[in-house]
Amino acid sequence: MRLQNRLYVSWRSPTNIDCKLVGPETPCFCLHRYKQHKTDFEEIPKERPIYLPCRVSNCQCKSYHYVPKNGSQPIRCRCKHFSDEHSEVPGYPCKKCSKCSGFHSSFTCGCGQPTYAHETIVETKEERLALGKPVGQDVPYAAMGGLTGFSSLAEGYMRLDNSGIGALPADLLESPVTNMDHPFLKAYSPPGPSQLTAGSSNMTRQVAQLKSSEEDDMAYFERQYQERLKNERIAKAMKKTQDSAPSKSKHP
């Protein structure tokens, strides 16, 4: 059933980036995990949007709804209260104050868009393919949501596939490395013609310096060795002199 009727869940920005691909352990606004919601359907509903109610007893969550966090902390509503201080009832009214008409946060996502501009999307494989989004392989695992691979764990603005910002343009990837680029790129980029000439002279200079350094080290150790031999010879000579000297004894 899961191979044919899998549902893909994502948190999508107005720019069509899946900023968050929901997995089994991704929490909902009701604080329960995605895997604790209804995720398996013998027949996919024809109505849209598709609702994924929470299966935890006494939870009033009618459908899975993703809400981001600020690090490990819940984000605040415009009423200044945290998201977990709001009800999971649709509309998400605040439990702490009466002036809040529903959870509305301007917390900015990594894509540059505010939270309230995003939407939790539940879609089928066919709908996702029609948008050019990756669907991964068909797997029998429960509550996989939008996960299709390791890259799904990254945020959308960092993901270089069609669910994120997409692949980088070829002209950017093939552009020459400059001094403004990351040191890693400068260290491992293939050298150009001018760099080959400069590189050969630099290599010659480095080899010469290395050779000089090795010679200095050998000379130092040789001096230390000769100094030790000299001290040993002096010590032996002094001992021999002491042994050959006549001993003085007192006679009554």
Rank of each mutant, 00 (worst) to 15 (best):
R2E: 05
W11V: 04
S13V: 00
V22S: 06
E25H: 10
H32L: 07
R33E: 13
K38M: 13
T39H: 15
F41R: 05
P45Y: 03
E47M: 03
I50T: 12
C54M: 01
R55C: 12
C59K: 15
C59T: 14
C61M: 14
P68K: 11
G71W: 10
S72A: 05
S72V: 02
P74D: 13
R76F: 04
K80Y: 11
E85Q: 15
E88C: 15
P90Q: 11
G91F: 02
K99F: 11
F103M: 06
F103D: 04
S105V: 02
S106W: 11
T108W: 01
C109W: 01
C111P: 08
C111A: 12
T115R: 05
Y116L: 00
E119G: 04
I121G: 13
V122M: 10
E123C: 14
T124C: 07
E126A: 12
A130D: 14
P134I: 04
G136K: 12
D138T: 12
Y141P: 02
L147T: 07
G149P: 12
F150A: 12
Y157P: 15
M158A: 08
S163C: 10
G166W: 13
A167M: 12
P169W: 04
P169E: 01
P169H: 00
P176W: 02
V177C: 14
K186G: 12
K186C: 11
A187Y: 05
Y188R: 10
Y188I: 09
S189V: 01
P190S: 14
G192Q: 03
S194H: 08
M203W: 07
T204W: 01
Q206A: 14
Q209C: 09
L210I: 03
S213E: 07
M218H: 14
E222G: 03
R223K: 08
R223V: 00
R223A: 04
Q226K: 15
R228Q: 12
N231D: 05
Q242A: 13
S244H: 08
S244I: 13
S247L: 07
P252A: 02
